[in-house]
Design a protein around this nucleic acid. Structure first.
Lengths: 330, 330
DNA sequence: CTGAAAGCGCTAACAG
DNA sequence: CTGTTAGCGCTTTCAG
């Protein structure tokens, strides 16, 4: 058990090794009868071709690698890790591929790793050091970046959210809910926040709502707390907050200062982290749709492997989950 | 580039293939000089041995598999997935092992998977179907279960939390904070909740606090809401809640009914999910220490591979994170 | 301490 | 449609 080789199957079935191999790989042509017999035998004796041998002989490892920015707080908070891994593995399983996780991304030599494991594709989440960029060019396997805003390599694939549209839509919802004085909250030097701000600006114009109001602080709960204090002294009645966690801080300050949410002021956050469901009121938020990103990443890889034409840059629709911070009845 | 084989290294260095192989694997004996020369050359030309070939020749794949209960809400909520994967991969990277994720655990034939990929060890999170249990016995590689309460196989390794102690400690903290009427909240038919309840009972006795009070409902926010309504009408001043999410619901109801937390009633939850930091007040909670579990899992696997003696059952210390729901100043 | 040679289990031509 | 055979790149005896 477990020591069976393709030779054993050939011998037992009475066919040649190459016929068995062909049947396994769906190559060449053999009678349906032969195929059935061989498949049946393999099943019966519990034979599974050894992957290392297949890889060695064919260079096909049936392995895709994935790399995460382990220290990134935001990725951690919104469970993107898990959502992406789940959708990726479940897509891969359809083609009996497995997913390997890259250890120690900071020191990992991606190229060597890909070579060593004969990876057939790589998914990279988040931004990467510029220094790694170069070496990536040398890899001749499909690479997909998810939520990468720094790099702009030719010949690799990008999957992103349209954060500008996210900011626009969130603000628009606020406007449609009769908010007249809508402010934007975010952090400096965070690319996605800037984009969301752009969307916010467009929406203001679109809805012919007055001057824009911008509040900036650290993308933390504490940052939100501080901003909330300030905001509670204004006539702002709508808030587009580029981070759920900041929004929590803001809500806390606002509530403490006697503001009612959503009656006095409505709020929409970004990221749709789990905690949105447990605050009082619950927080409406823009979901970045990580499951979809994982699925598309796998599609892109296979399409590139199979040499099909496909879009190298894809933007995944966001969707806004409305909760108690915008709707009066939760 | 990338097409280099051990032969090339042998030729270029002037040594034989087997010498190079020995140097790579630290086997045999060769002069330090030789080693240095060979290592230097490999570095210089960027040579990395091909893993498939090594695996085929030696049966050592340098690959560990991991399996997750993808549908398990609780595992999803507390980010255990990510914490375990992070600590596991970072431990593995020290020995240049990689981690593969098992696709589709429900249908996955673990044995065949292990064979096919020549896995050297498997980590399984959570409970598994009984039907899978049998087949696991046939695998002759180290298996580690983390947080598995159903199975009890001989010859495999278990890593768990001592939930009874968790319940005990949480209750004790409440008692030390002058709570006189402490209740336990949990769900029926959840093994860990029962254990935590046991600990709660012991702690009551230990602290010579009166009769026990037990509240049961679904392990959801809504379950907590319902229970909170009831609890707010009692003289309970301390709550040991077997799930953070229930605790959130309870807090919400309690607050709505005019109770002050922690002044009137102190609360400790279980799981220490991220959201604990964003509620008002923040929620004290028992942390299950998933990072440590991942590290220990890897240790166990390597110790078994290396044939060392080690404990097959290990309980990982929990630690209680105190926040605003127990301490008056947050 | 080093080298030659025999596989590991499979795929991929190439004949038949 | 099927069988033979030569590798894939590495490890591992076993002589030297």
């Amino acid at each position: 058990m477990g020591k069976l080789t393709i030779k054993d199957i050939a011998k037992k079935s009475g066919f040649s090794v190459s016929t068995v191999s062909n049947v396994i790989n769906g190559k060449g042509k053999c009678s349906l009868e032969t195929q059935k017999k061989i498949f049946h035998l393999m099943e019966e004796v519990g034979y599974k071709p050894n992957q290392a041998a297949r890889t060695l002989a064919s260079k096909k490892s049936n392995l895709i690698g994935i790399l995460f920015p382990v220290e990134d707080e935001i990725f951690r908070k919104n469970n993107s890790y898990q959502k992406i891994v789940n959708s990726v593995t479940s897509e891969l399983s359809k083609k009996s591929y497995d997913l390997v996780i890259g250890n120690n991304i900071k020191e990992l030599d991606i190229l060597e790793w890909a070579l060593k494991r004969d990876l057939e594709g790589i998914i990279i989440i988040g931004d990467l050091d510029i220094s790694k960029e170069k070496e990536l060019k040398k890899i001749n396997i499909p690479i997909v970046f998810i939520d990468n805003y720094k790099n702009n390599l030719y010949g690799v694939n990008y999957i992103n959210s349209d954060d500008t549209i996210g900011g626009f839509n969130a603000t628009e919802i606020l406007a449609k809910n009769k908010c007249k004085n809508i402010a934007f909250v975010g952090s400096e030097d965070i690319e996605v926040h800037s984009r969301r701000y752009l969307g916010y600006q467009s929406a203001l114009i679109e809805s012919s709502l007055g001057e824009e109001r911008l509040y900036l602080d650290q993308p933390t709960y504490e940052g939100g707390l501080a901003l909330g204090e300030m905001i509670s002294k204004t006539d702002i009645d709508g808030l587009c907050v580029a981070s759920d966690i900041m929004a929590f801080g803001i809500m806390s300050s606002l509530l403490k200062n006697g503001k009612k949410i959503p009656e006095d002021i409505k709020i929409i956050g970004f990221d749709n982290i789990d905690s949105c469901r447990y605050t009082t009121p619950t927080l409406s938020s823009v979901d970045l749709n990580f499951s979809a990103k994982g699925i598309v990443a796998v599609q892109m890889i296979f399409e590139e492997i199979e040499g099909k034409f496909f879009l190298r840059n894809q933007s995944i629709d966001l969707n806004i989950v409305l909760r108690g911070s915008t709707v009066c009845k939760n």
